[in-house]
Design a binder for these strands. Sequence first.
DNA 1: CATATATTCAACCTAATGGGTGAATATAAA
DNA 2: TTTATATTCACCCATTAGGTTGAATATATG
Lengths: 107, 107
Amino acid sequence: MQTALDDTLAALADPTRRAILARLAAGEARVTELAQPFDMSLNSVSKHIRMLERASLVTRRVAGRDHFLSFNPAPLDAAQAWITEQQALWAWRLRRLDDVLNTGDAP
Amino acid sequence: MQTALDDTLAALADPTRRAILARLAAGEARVTELAQPFDMSLNSVSKHIRMLERASLVTRRVAGRDHFLSFNPAPLDAAQAWITEQQALWAWRLRRLDDVLNTGDAP
DNA sequence: CATATATTCAACCTAATGGGTGAATATAAA
DNA sequence: TTTATATTCACCCATTAGGTTGAATATATG
């Protein structure tokens, strides 16, 4: 199955998409504006945006022929939570290991 | 180009690989042990491990015919830093926007 | 109405993923 | 030495990703 977290992390795994998100964190923009910095067809950028939408990292507001994209940071929370949890698990294990070595207790 | 952050996020985007990492955060394990919970060939798990190694999230210690895998949390820092930065950017923008609305200053 | 602009749709290509199987390799154990 | 175990290597397959180009659609503008 494809979970929301899967989609979020997959969306973040591409540098073009991260750059788009970083731009959008500063405020909404149209597709053409987002595409401008990249040496890539407008169509390709459009596809990247679609993947960001699939991950709910970006929302679209259509106004006439212009599509305004906005950043939605909500999905980042789950990604950050997962990472933080692994780091915590690891830190806990190291601490426990240290205790064992210092006190000589059984593991 | 394929940066380290790209590899890290791509590695984390798969649920099987996240489960493997979560297991390894509790301590090192052999390939067969890691594969055991999954309804999947040993070979497939072996491939997932290779991707985790490419992302430097896992290191391998060979002891005879056994390969012991360990979790390396270091690459998570960069991923977490990127996410935190976007969240901060967004929070800053919201704060600034709020100021403008409250004081009536020019944007 | 005619034309320019903004965006997507459709088809195509190549490379990478994620899965499988069977054989090869290396080490351990009987 | 023979056999069993642990792991990878070498293919095969279907799907997706990331890019292209060209046509279609919708809206502005002269």
